[in-house]
């Protein structure tokens, strides 16, 4: 069994840290919830971070 974390009410897990996951996480934070953004690779950003144009910033203000 893994180490149990402190119970944190009002939290949501977002699986996948691409543009969809990041946006969902940001909105949830602003709606008053704690978010665990779970990403399998070493950095969030997903495919959008690989795109050339249409990609102005890569800010993830989590």
């Amino acid at each position: 069994m893994g180490k149990a974390m402190n119970h944190r009410e009002g939290s949501v897990m977002v699986l996948g840290g691409g543009i969809a996951g990041i946006q969902a996480a940001l909105d949830l934070t602003e709606l008053g919830y704690y978010v665990y953004l779970v990403e399998k690779s070493p950095a969030v950003g997903g495919v959008m971070a690989q795109l050339d144009k249409t990609f102005p910033t890569n800010d993830c203000s989590l």
Binding site: M1, G2, K3, A4, M5, H7, R8, E9, G10, S11, V12, M13, V14, L15, G16, G18, A20, G21, A24, L28, Y33, Y36, V38
Partner: peptide
């Protein structure tokens, strides 16, 4: 790790 969460979003 075990996360206690109320909902899950799959993205």
């Amino acid at each position: 790790r075990i996360l206690q969460v109320g909902a899950v979003i799959l993205s």
